[in-house]
Write a protein that binds this DNA or RNA. Structure first.
Length: 280
DNA sequence: ATCCAGGATAGCG
DNA sequence: CGCTATCATGGA
């Protein structure tokens, strides 16, 4: 296997793959093994570059969004102390371009789960129902395609610890498999239209739709407001005010964080989730 | 033990 | 419309 090193300035592989935007990459040697659709991929950080099998260079560079002008994006963030410390903490984090179905399926299994558990579920489904991919010392599993997942019995899916999410994942897979929702077509829609269509899927509300828009469709202004972002907004930007309505949090985020609000949101999410200590 | 987790949704007033 | 209870499971 011929390896290649390609430049990856302003990039941190570990922060990018382990910040709760994608859930199946597993440490291997000095890097990570995973799959992009049906392609087995190994990639490792090498200073300001990444090192990977040459045949996957193009695929991975696109997936990891190495072409995003990160310094220019960061410059659009508001200048406040909370953003500044998050930018420092999450330096090199990029929002990637996931295949839509993989991303949607992962977030369908996310409600009321910790990142750790979403990882476990994602890997269990891949191992159990996906395709085994092997190449030399590397091994990974693809995520079952919609039409494959749609054929799985609910009882079998439940063995992957999905709980009440299994029903939604299965029903959504059937809608995608039957063509009721065309995930590829959403690439050409406006963000509003794509969000509306995604919310037609069972188990998808505005938050998960925004996750998919941000992490799969490159709508970098989409802001998923989960418990962590809600916490940041309430404790920092709405400090002292009790019970701020969700619609107010949404409108504030869209205005205050700027054209790459989704990117800013991810830096805040990563920082707060890994450093937060509950107060007495 | 008790509370919480990258929420969505039916059912209520 | 906005509010609430509920859903299943494991981590902290």
């Amino acid at each position: 296997m011929r390896f290649q090193t390609i430049p990856a300035p302003h990039f941190n592989l570990e922060k990018t793959l382990c910040s709760g935007q994608v859930f199946h990459w597993t440490p291997h040697g000095r890097g990570f093994v995973g799959a992009i659709s049906e392609n087995l991929v190994y990639v490792e950080q090498a200073g300001a570059s990444i090192r990977l099998p040459a045949e996957h260079a193009k695929l991975v560079a696109h997936y990891l969004a190495l072409d995003h002008p990160l310094p220019a994006i960061l410059q659009t963030f508001p200048d406040d102390p909370v953003i500044r410390v998050a930018m420092e903490f999450a330096q090199g984090l990029r929002i990637i371009r996931q295949p839509p179905w993989e991303c949607l399926a992962a977030f369908l299994s996310s409600p009321l789960k910790q990142v750790r558990q979403i990882q476990a579920i994602s890997l269990a489904i891949r191992k159990r129902f996906g395709r085994r991919l092997r190449r030399g010392e590397f091994e990974a599993f693809s995520y079952p395609r919609p039409e494959e997942l749609a054929e799985i019995r609910l009882e079998k899916l439940l063995e992957c610890k999905l709980g009440f999410r299994a029903r939604n994942l299965l029903a959504s897979a059937k809608m995608v498999a039957s063509g009721g929702v065309d995930l590829e077509a959403l690439r050409h829609c406006s963000a509003e239209e794509a969000r509306r269509v995604l919310c037609e899927l069972p188990g998808v509300g505005e938050k998960i739709a925004n996750c998919v828009l941000l992490f799969a469709y490159e709508r970098l202004d989409a802001v998923p407001i989960d418990v962590w972002i809600g916490r940041v907004l309430n404790e920092v930007y709405f400090a002292g005010r009790a019970k701020v309505p969700l619609r107010e949090l949404k409108s504030f985020s869209a205005k205050y964080f700027g054209p790459y609000a989704g990117y800013a949101q991810q830096y805040l999410f990563h920082h707060w989730r890994l450093t937060y200590r509950r107060r007495a």
